[in-house]
């Protein structure tokens, strides 16, 4: 060895997760999924395949679903991040997508669930009244190794009902 390994540089990064600021000191190579779990301490975001295939680590970046394992934390400093911990109602009760998963048995082991919940939360904002086919399309980028897809698709439609029911209540 002619070269000695330099000490890895650490960067000061502010992540805004579910409305709260977190100042962390991390190397540039820290994946966002790892930063959320290890540096911020929010372990709701799960890490499955770690190369963008499984969807378990899906979070919302400025409201849009993205894979946390395909982003460097430093690259999203200052942007609004929403993890599964941010999907509950302000009073701590289950949010509509979570409630739908509970009612429809949309989860079995629960490992993939955080990625589904974030994906569906954003998906129903774009398409508040999906058909069953559209519900399946909405979750087509997420894998469930318990293969509980039937009930997950049902949960999407149920979540839409819950959200629209609340909406109607406000309007009528």
């Amino acid at each position: 060895m002619t070269q000695t390994q330099p000490t890895e540089e650490l960067l000061d990064v502010r992540l805004i997760v579910n409305g709260a600021s977190h100042d962390i000191r991390i190397p540039a190579r820290r994946l966002l999924s790892d930063a959320l779990r290890h540096d911020v301490g929010l372990t709701g975001t799960h890490v499955g395949c770690e190369h963008g295939v499984c969807g378990a680590c899906t979070i919302l970046l400025d409201g849009t679903p993205v894979r946390a394992c395909l982003l460097f934390a430093v690259s999203v400093a200052g942007q609004e991040l929403t993890t599964v911990e941010g999907l509950a109602n302000p009073d701590g009760t289950l949010g509509p997508v979570q409630q739908a998963f509970k009612e429809c048995h949309g989860l079995q082991c629960g490992f993939c669930t955080p990625g589904f919940l974030t994906t569906i939360t954003a998906g129903l904002k774009d398409n508040p009244d999906p058909t069953e086919d559209e519900a399946r399309e909405m979750v087509s980028g997420n894998l469930c190794r318990c293969t509980g897809y039937q009930n997950i698709a049902k949960s999407v439609c149920r979540a839409a009902e819950l959200i629209n029911g609340q909406g109607k209540g406000d309007q009528e």
């Binding site: 993205v66 395909l70 982003l71 087509s140 980028g141």
Partner: peptide, 9 residues
Amino acid sequence: VAHPTIRNR
């Protein structure tokens, strides 16, 4: 191209 979530980024 991949899935919508990948296309978002």
